[in-house]
């Protein structure tokens, strides 16, 4: 049954594979960029006293 599903499944054309790969890379870069941005904003907002605050 599973084997039949595999053979009947959707096969992507090279163009579809290429565009999906491009979209995935774009999403990955955007997420990475925003992780770095949020980190930088956090440090900027906390300021230089971030490591010397009272517990």
């Amino acid at each position: 049954m599973d084997a039949q599903k595999d053979t009947d499944g959707v096969r992507l054309t090279p163009e579809q594979l290429k565009s999906r790969r491009q979209r995935n890379i774009a999403i990955g870069l955007a997420v990475g960029f925003f992780v770095l941005l949020f980190y930088a904003v956090t440090i900027a907002k906390l300021g230089p006293g971030v490591v010397s605050r009272p517990m």
């Binding site: 992507l12 163009e15 979209r23 890379i25």
Partner: peptide, 8 residues
């Protein structure tokens, strides 16, 4: 089913 070929 037509699969998207939309680019970024």
């Amino acid at each position: 089913a037509k699969i998207s070929v939309a680019s970024p």
